[in-house]
Design a protein around this nucleic acid. Structure first.
Length: 276
DNA sequence: CGGTAGACCTGACCGC
DNA sequence: TGCGGTCAGGTCTACC
């Protein structure tokens, strides 16, 4: 369930359970995901203490004591399961458990990804660039993200608001759910061209994006358990969604029917009355 | 360069 | 119960 709030929730869970502990071993059960998982990962990571967990947009970065890093992206269906291993309750490997990280405190971290759109990569200590990290845009919570910055990026862009907000090279972290939610709060119709956005709209959009993500992170905090005992479904913030997946249901503000449309092959939801 | 389909995968669900 | 179609939280790559 990975957009930025879910990734943030995973990172907070990992910070609590994994930071300060040493990786005893890494087991690759299936290295053929979106990109092949480097075969050096187990050797490079074994014996390394995890010194920190960082979220970079939707990427999870696990910092190691020797300044190496493990990079994880959850794709569409990825999860990180945290299992407290004891001699009596060893972790039972399940289908689509592709990587196991065994820590010295008995914790077992499992990268689980049925659709295999996710990424697990190893960045060695000296490596300063990365194909995937180098191209991502501003974090939504970055102070650099202002209405003026957005207007500049939106200028003469001949794409819909939905699609430009999905573009991770502009703002990195929004996904299909929260783009609809942010545009609803900002009262902007998803098919509007980016170049037509006004300064006032851009200002409201910035606050809307942050508010939506913050709300979801707060709700996601209570769904941390899902990553320990995953049940495989949408988290608690599903109830908090105002337009996403609410096709033909009433707008919570004006009671107009929420409309579903398809943009770039993905569902978008919006209120035809509140959003212009 | 900007913009857009297609590609990669599995699983859940729905109508027949 | 089975089968085919559709849809799903992402984003890279190839092509106009």
């Amino acid at each position: 369930m990975p957009e930025l709030p879910e990734v943030e929730t995973v990172c907070r869970g990992l910070s609590q359970t994994a930071v300060g502990h040493t990786i005893d071993s890494v087991i690759l059960h299936r290295a053929t995901i979106r990109f092949p998982i480097p075969t050096v990962l187990p050797l490079a990571a074994a014996g390394q203490k995890i010194t920190g967990i960082e979220r970079i947009s939707k990427y999870i970065v696990m910092h190691l004591a020797d300044d190496g890093r493990i990079l994880i992206h959850l794709g569409m269906s990825g999860r990180i399961l945290i299992h407290e291993d004891t001699p009596k309750t060893p972790y039972e490997l399940k289908k689509h458990d592709h990587v196991e990280f065994l820590l010295d405190n008995g914790t077992c971290l499992i990268f689980h990804d049925p659709r295999r759109f996710g990424v697990v990569d190893y960045i060695s200590p000296g490596q300063t660039t990365h194909k995937l990290l180098d191209r991502i845009g501003l974090d939504p919570f970055s102070a650099k993200l202002t209405a003026a910055w957005l207007l500049n990026r939106f200028a003469k862009r001949n794409v819909s608001m939905k699609n430009i907000l999905m573009d991770q090279q502009v703002i990195a972290g929004l996904g299909n759910i929260y783009v609809s939610e942010a545009l609803y709060r900002a009262k902007i119709w998803p098919e509007r061209l980016a170049s037509t956005v006004t300064p006032a709209e851009a200002k409201l959009l910035v606050t809307s994006i942050r508010a939506v993500l913050k709300d979801a992170i707060n709700a996601g905090g209570s769904s941390l358990r899902d990553y320990v005992h995953p049940d495989g479904k949408l988290g608690y913030f599903q109830q908090k969604l105002r337009v996403y997946n609410r096709d033909n249901e009433d707008c919570k503000i004006c009671h107009t029917k929420i409309q579903r449309m398809v943009q770039a092959g993905r569902s978008t939801y919006a209120c035809p009355h509140c959003q212009v």
